[in-house]
Design a protein around this nucleic acid. Structure first.
Lengths: 159, 159
DNA sequence: GAATCACTACTCGGATAGGGTGTGTCCGAGTATACATGG
DNA sequence: CCATGTATACTCGGACACACCCTATCCGAGTAGTGATTC
């Protein structure tokens, strides 16, 4: 089981957008260059964030992306769902119904016990993701590197 | 994010092995036929369970697979780890260190705040998986379909 | 009749191809800006 | 000097190839059973 690379990019991009401030949008090319990421592909991930209503985009000169709401109102779950999609990791294909092992169809009113157990675990995962906001992460990140926000702003201004 | 199909197969196979009883091993071909699965590929998954020490294999005539320990001592985490591998879903590639965004290396003693947050969620997921044994699932499954174990044993005997 | 040996059939195990999803890239639609032009 | 229309440059957005991992498969190594053979 492996999560898409784009999730990490989207998370850092959201944090960078918050540090950049709401004054003017930041283009995908700038966000990508700041961490040496392929710009068109990061653009693709940002589009997913737009569809999820996390960031907003502006076309044309002086356009770019900006956060729609403050970091405190963006959970990790929001970003993961935006990039990875809403599907669950474990998808029960109901093999119990196939072949000689599949008995009377009346037994299949209730969901597969394995699927239920796996869903329970995924629920715990989602709950934990939904309980942490990007604001929490920002505080930790700034405690580790207090100069990071200012460095980003300078780099954006001088570019 | 998507979990391998083989996890579902491995889980049902373990349950079927428990229902078959410890008297004699069951071949991969029989286990596969019972749910109309591709036999060679299921064999591959069973090999992973062997490497993980969950089932044991016997070669030659009257060979096959059998459970090493009772279902109560096999957690969902054991099976998932055996099939999916030990790697975490979210793998931090430390993009924060790349490009102009990467500041002084001294800031990177501590792990990335995003990676820490994601790891916390995955820990909750793993904890939930480790808290449920196959015995728990067996009880639920037999409550839903009490005839299932006997049907499997009959089918194995008549095959 | 019993033990031994070789043969056979059967099973797992790892090495080998194909398909789907993520990864990376490109070009076109749309817009704010800047400039030239006319009043 | 100011308003207007136009051309321009820049940005996002979706459509297009490539690569890797999961899926599916095959054949060889090893083993238990079986039968013939010999003492």
């Amino acid at each position: 089981m492996r999560m898409t690379e784009g999730v990490e990019w989207a998370l850092h991009s959201c944090l960078n957008l918050a540090w950049a401030g709401p004054d003017r949008p930041v283009t995908a090319a700038r966000l990508a260059a700041y961490h040496e990421l392929p710009a068109p592909y990061l653009n693709k991930q940002l589009q997913a964030l737009v569809r999820a209503g996390i960031v907003a985009s502006t076309s044309g000169p002086r356009g770019g992306f900006r956060l729609v709401r403050p970091l405190a109102q963006i959970t990790l779950m929001d970003v993961v769902a935006a990039i990875e999609g809403p599907d669950e990791a474990f998808r029960c294909t109901e093999i119990r119904q196939q072949g000689p092992g599949g008995g009377a169809p009346a037994s299949y009113r209730l969901p597969c016990a394995f699927a239920h157990a796996m869903a329970r675990a995924e629920l715990a995962w989602r709950r934990e993701l939904a309980g942490q906001t990007l604001e929490d992460v920002r505080e930790q990140a700034e405690a580790q590197a207090p100069a990071a926000p200012e460095r980003l702003r300078r780099w954006l201004a001088n570019g």
